[in-house]
C-alpha cells in the first residue's frame, strides 16, 4: 500500500547564452533541436521524443531504466514567441505519478545574447524518487573531480 504524501517545492535556474532570444526560443520549438539538449544522452533506451509546440499541445518521452520506466508528459499553457513559455508537466515512474509541476521559461535580451530564467513549482507525490538521479549526481561530481585532477 502506497503511503500518500505531497511535498511542495520551487526552484529557479538562471543562464546567460551568447545567442539571441530568437535562437534560444527556437531551441524550444523544434522537436529535433529540443531533443538534442532536453533528453539526457546518458538515459538508457529513450523512446522517441514527441513535441507539439502550441498552447494546448504538449510533449512526451519515455526512458526505460532497469529500476523503472520513466515517462514525462507536458502541456503548453502559455507561449509568447521569443519571450516566455509556461507549461505543466507530470513525471511517472512506471505508472505511478511522481510529480506535477508548473515550469516557466523566461527569455530576455542580455547584451548581444539572451538571459534565460527557468522556474519550477512542483508537487512531489508519495515520496517516489528516481533512483537514477542519485547516480547522475554522483557521476557529475566524479566528472568534476576528474576535471580538476
Amino acid at each position: 500500500m502506497t503511503e500518500r504524501s505531497v511535498t511542495h517545492g520551487t526552484f529557479t535556474i538562471d543562464r546567460s547564452y551568447p545567442a539571441t532570444p530568437v535562437r534560444v526560443f527556437a531551441a524550444f520549438t523544434d522537436a529535433n533541436a529540443k531533443a538534442r539538449w532536453f533528453c539526457d544522452p546518458d538515459d538508457p533506451q529513450t523512446d522517441g521524443y514527441e513535441l507539439d509546440f502550441r498552447v494546448g499541445g504538449g510533449e512526451r518521452f519515455v526512458s526505460k531504466h532497469e529500476s523503472a520506466t520513466y515517462r514525462y508528459e507536458s502541456r503548453y499553457c502559455d507561449i509568447v514567441p521569443d519571450q516566455r513559455i509556461v507549461l505543466t508537466y507530470e513525471m511517472y515512474a512506471d505508472d505511478a505519478r511522481m510529480s506535477v509541476s508548473v515550469a516557466t521559461v523566461e527569455i530576455t535580451p542580455d547584451g548581444a545574447g539572451a538571459h534565460l530564467t527557468y522556474t519550477e513549482q512542483g508537487a512531489f507525490l508519495d515520496g517516489i524518487d528516481k533512483s537514477e538521479y542519485r547516480e547522475h549526481g554522483t557521476r557529475e561530481l566524479l566528472d568534476k573531480l576528474g576535471e580538476t585532477l
Binding site: T10, V24, S99, D129
Partner: peptide
C-alpha cells in the same frame, strides 16, 4: 526532490548552451 529536479534542469540548460 528539489535538489534532484534542479540538477536535472541544470544539466539540461548546460546542454542547451552547448547546443546553441
Amino acid at each position: 526532490w528539489i535538489t534532484n529536479r534542479r540538477t536535472e534542469w541544470e544539466r539540461r540548460l548546460d546542454r542547451l548552451g552547448d547546443f546553441l
